[in-house]
């Protein structure tokens, strides 16, 4: 079981992903577009979201101590 956490517009929200196969970064971005667009991510009310809204986003992955996986989709930020 994985949880996708999407950060958009300064807000973050979780979306459970019941998948038993690895997701590429591209998969994650496409899933995020779909679920945010359709209003399925509680806490991320986005009226209109472009197909490529997450193209420049970064995907971070963390394994949890319980054997699950957290996937973070967040804006790329500059350093320095």
């Amino acid at each position: 079981m994985a949880v996708l956490n999407i950060t958009y517009g300064g807000l973050s929200a979780d979306y459970p992903l019941d998948v038993d196969y690895p997701l590429t970064d591209r998969d994650v971005r496409r899933i995020a577009v779909e679920v945010v667009r359709s209003g399925g991510v509680r806490g991320l009310p986005v009226a209109s979201l472009g197909e490529r809204a997450f193209d420049d986003y970064v995907v971070d992955r963390f394994d949890t101590v319980h054997g699950g996986r957290r996937i973070y989709l967040r804006p790329k930020v500059p350093f320095g």
């Binding site: 956490n5 950060t7 300064g10 807000l11 973050s12 970064v58 971070d60 963390f62 973070y72 967040r74 804006p75 930020v77 500059p78 350093f79 320095g80």
Partner: peptide
Amino acid sequence: VCLAGADELVTLESLPGVIRE
């Protein structure tokens, strides 16, 4: 951490990933 003023793009949830990067 120094994010060139872009701090408000992220949340506490996604911040560890930013710091790791």
